[in-house]
Design a protein around this nucleic acid. Structure first.
Lengths: 268, 268
DNA sequence: CGAAGAGTTGAAGCTCGTCAATAATCGTGG
DNA sequence: CCACGATTATTGACGAGCTTCAACTCTTCG
């Protein structure tokens, strides 16, 4: 199945051109650090190599040693791992501008899988090239480091969510986070909401509930006019109420351009 | 209360000398990278400044901008955050050789607290000095990066634990992890187990259960001869059984000296 | 020695999981 | 384009794991 997909990768028809002008990586890094023309050009250069995946492909397999970094250009990917008893935990979702594996420096095997939820366009970055860039441009290195710090903060937020909140709060928090991330990308139309080929199964494995219970809570959200769920498109109807329920504060995502002052940057 | 503690810091009686020969940081980094004499010396130099905390002190407060990094020399610290409803999630425990805040490069405020469970000896590392070291000695930078990757992997493991396992499995996994980490430090005597001034309250806030339920499961563990719990000393009686219950595999902790091959290290 | 905190126990009940069956939707091939 | 199987969504009944509340004991520490 996978082999067929992979072999057909190059036969894909016309590819929807998603990356117009700016590299999504530049956009992302500039949340943290201002980049000059040279740095942008360098980033553009190492994100030229493209690759396309179909929904349900596997990007990175548990136990593999990729030796490369994937930058999500369009589509949605997610990290996950199965337990022996068949249960699965999802560790995170990767949207445009996210890097599949901050683990670039480690040459140890990956401890989880990265799958693809929708058809996804990816830029393949060779490790040596990225390393070189980080050495040459400390500001880029710094921004990449900050990206990984956001990842860690998000992971803590998820642990808190799964460990300390009840079902309603968990789901409200999940939708708030996803919505905030999609909004920051400017992907979707004015109507609050986002389109992800996300099933309730994935949501259940994200927040540590069963599908049945997720379904019931979602229905309650609909009944109470908080959000709508149809054909895999989530429409946030009452963002304020959801944030209230979840106790959501998007600060940890660092979506704004909260650039650090140079004072504390070792490299000036 | 806190102010009293802080003001009394320097009045402490004779300090138990824990750091004999090798800096715990060197020991830790050499899990990942072989260091030469010069690098070791440099690391020794920046870990000279010491500080001592009493049990229940706060090392780093949520919302603060420490501007320094703490290296745990002895004792146990832990990361945590409270929700508005009074519930608390613990994000991790810091033992000898752990760094309080891989967030060194970020000058944004810390998003969680770091407290101290027992009397703790800490080395204060100034940020600029650390940065300098990382620039000058790429191998050290690399090792620090790998340390933070282990942190991230551990966080994922906790999310999986809290999200997908039942109470017995959660607690078994927690004890397996703590035991493995203590064993790798060679802190405790031959008898398997470890001494931590850990209350059942903290354990509950770690794995997302209530104290009452933690208590019941622990009693069951005792009844079944899996572990003993007296006076804050945990004695692992049947490690194999606990690991079996939890499905524990210590690989993610990278306790062995699994040094990366230089081939993939950008800096040679 | 007394107070505060931690550990333990029991009863009651709610949230959430399990099982199971049906309806809706999706994806794929004919 | 339709039909088919497979996946997903939905619903109900039931039960269990865990929580809550509350009391009591034991330990710790000033």
């Amino acid at each position: 199945m996978l082999v067929e997909y992979l072999s057909s990768v190059r036969d894909l028809g016309p590819i929807p051109c998603v990356t117009e002008s700016l590299s999504p990586l530049i956009e992302r890094l500039e949340r943290f650090v201002a980049l000059d023309a040279e740095e942008r050009q360098a980033l553009d250069k190492i994100t030229q190599s493209r690759r396309y995946y179909h929904a349900h492909d596997t990007l990175v397999r548990e136990g593999s040693m990729p030796g490369r970094v994937c930058l999500i250009l369009s589509g949605v990917a997610f990290r996950y791992r199965y337990l022996a008893n068949g249960r699965r935990q999802i560790f995170g979702y990767l949207l445009r501008g996210d890097l599949c594996d901050t683990q670039f420096v480690i040459n140890n095997e990956c401890d989880h899988n990265i799958g693809v939820l929708s058809d996804t366009e990816v830029a393949i970055i060779a490790l040596p090239a990225l390393m070189e860039l980080m050495v040459k441009y400390p500001r880029i290195e710094r921004a990449l480091l900050m990206m990984s710090l956001v990842d860690a903060a998000t992971l803590r937020e998820w642990l808190l969510n799964v460990g300390q909140r009840d079902a309603m709060q968990k789901l409200a928090h999940f939708f708030c986070e996803m919505n905030a991330r999609f909004q920051s990308l400017g992907v979707d139309d004015a109507a609050a909401g986002f389109s992800v080929p996300l099933t309730q199964i994935e949501i259940a494995d994200t927040v540590g509930l069963t599908v049945v219970h997720v379904n019931r809570v979602l229905q309650r959200f609909r009944r109470e006019g908080l959000l709508n769920w149809s054909r895999r498109h989530v429409c946030i109807l009452d963002q304020a109420a959801l944030e209230q329920i979840a106790g959501f504060d998007s600060a940890y995502l660092r979506l704004g351009r909260i650039r650090s002052e140079p004072s504390l940057c070792a490299y000036g």
